[in-house]
Write a protein that binds this DNA or RNA. Sequence first.
DNA 1: CTGTTAGCGCTTTCAG
DNA 2: CTGAAAGCGCTAACAG
Lengths: 349, 349
Amino acid sequence: MATATIRDVARTAAVSVASASRALNGHPSVTPATRTRVLEAADALNYVPHLGARSLSTRRSNTIGVVLPDLFGEFFSEIIRGIDYAAHRRGLQLLLSNMHGSAQETAAALRAMRGRVDGLLVMSPQLDADFLAHNLPKGLPAVVLNGRIEGARHASIAIDNQAGAHAAVAHLVEQGCKRIAHLSGPKGNADADERARGFRDAVATMLGDHDPIVLAGDFSEEAGIAAGTALAGRDVDGIFSANDIMAIGCMAALTEAGRMIPGDIAMVGFDDVPIARYVTPALSTMRVHIAQLGESALERLVATIEADEPPEATAEFLMPELVVRASSARTGTVTSTKGPHDRTQGRVV
Amino acid sequence: MATATIRDVARTAAVSVASASRALNGHPSVTPATRTRVLEAADALNYVPHLGARSLSTRRSNTIGVVLPDLFGEFFSEIIRGIDYAAHRRGLQLLLSNMHGSAQETAAALRAMRGRVDGLLVMSPQLDADFLAHNLPKGLPAVVLNGRIEGARHASIAIDNQAGAHAAVAHLVEQGCKRIAHLSGPKGNADADERARGFRDAVATMLGDHDPIVLAGDFSEEAGIAAGTALAGRDVDGIFSANDIMAIGCMAALTEAGRMIPGDIAMVGFDDVPIARYVTPALSTMRVHIAQLGESALERLVATIEADEPPEATAEFLMPELVVRASSARTGTVTSTKGPHDRTQGRVV
DNA sequence: CTGTTAGCGCTTTCAG
DNA sequence: CTGAAAGCGCTAACAG
């Protein structure tokens, strides 16, 4: 039994499809009598409108496309949660697509959105402006999340990584650290690169250290463990990790190697993923309101869509905030450490 | 500059739209010559097919609708990850929709999928079969995840909660626990109810305890903390929590109240969310391969769609496995406890 | 092999 | 206020 169409409803109600459509959509110019007849017919037939057809004709899908590099880890689930939250309150649906890797696939994912969404949210820390400009379907509003934006022609919203790195280093220095190392993210990733740059800048100016130890990581826990093992025997009293997950792996490896945290080495991560406050010691980190990042991006996109004007290529930056927890507290800065694992928010500076 | 349509491509290539369509879709019966002409034209115009239109005509969207009760927490992000993984390898997109609460909204979400997806994945531990039967658009293949399935007319895949609860209790008993309490999930949630039932059964048969302590929770960390506080002063030496998050909150509260875990009280959770192995002590739990649950559900749905037959209303059950970590190890069962937080998989029984 | 002709299901002028 | 008709962009018979 094929699902009923608006035609069936019209026929049953003995009106034209036009009237049926109007009645169904609450259009004002319909006699109360016809309206009820149509509504009853629809109900009787258990009619459900075919949204695909509707959007073809209205050129509106009420759907936002979301393209992500991956779905793994808390960072992305938080982003999606934020996007969903904002989308839900506006009655928008989300069409998800992740490009597991290759640029080829990314291009395909981007194109696959054409004709199914009203706008695009693209998160691609490793894609450059040219690629995007070339592969984003023309005429489709888009907001780029968290990507490098130089020379881009679309709106973007990103984290102020350099400032974050500075703040992290400043905090470590304040804790008395003299030899600070950096555990970096994957080369080519905009966020990672900016954090590394910010780190180098900061240690150079604050510590006069022009050749700090920088270990190449890839944002994975394994990379953190490897780095921890490598760092255990070296002359280091502070570490700034490009993300929390690596910091956590690194702390585990260091502890196992007998180094005390924060006693011997103070640690600061980046992101403030939910897990950060559960580990022991609780991880100090640069908090990015991840979910809110997603939320803002969606709001921004909706504004662009509604304005129906050439998307302003403005960039928006979010400043992360320092959250001090046990992993970096060497000078009594942390006031509350209640249990074995400190579940408090931490001191926000 | 409105995006080019297949018409434009056809005109530019000087062929009919039919030929253009055929060439674009790699249909065999097209002269190499025309094919290249079309492809070149498409390239020149930067043509991107309008998938909405295509699916209207093919009655195929290559999209799966996913309806969830919420997006919060690791359980759901893991589920989505699993679904996405399977969808991606089949070239399917995901249309997400979550019903923040009300049945009203859920019904709307379900209907909103009509005409935009080839099948539905519905996850609704608190919805009954009647509601679903009445609100799922007829003729749309659907697989229900993790819900109560009695009397349902659609395929379902769920966790064997009773068996899981039994195994958890058996483990606690084996550890020497005599007075085991249960921290339950929200009433009306199928999983929660089944776990509670399994718990009661188990303590009755294994311990002869016909009136065990059961605290009502709601799957949140706060509920766990409250329960921990309430339980701290009572005569209890083992706790089976209906999910991990509550178990974690409970452990924190108990520890703060001065009770040792697992010394005084052994704890076992349910789910094995990623955080479980990061807390201190690492949490023993009934592992559900959450991501795999999502994966299986998608595979199942795809099979149903391809078979194009009345969806078999078969139920599939996944047996969770016991993972022993520090929180319940009172008899030297855990062989490796390497660091301050044991990051090993735990002993799987 | 290619072009013509109908739709997919819905909305929306444009006349009545 | 209502109906007929023309599409939205694409695919799929059916003839040539």
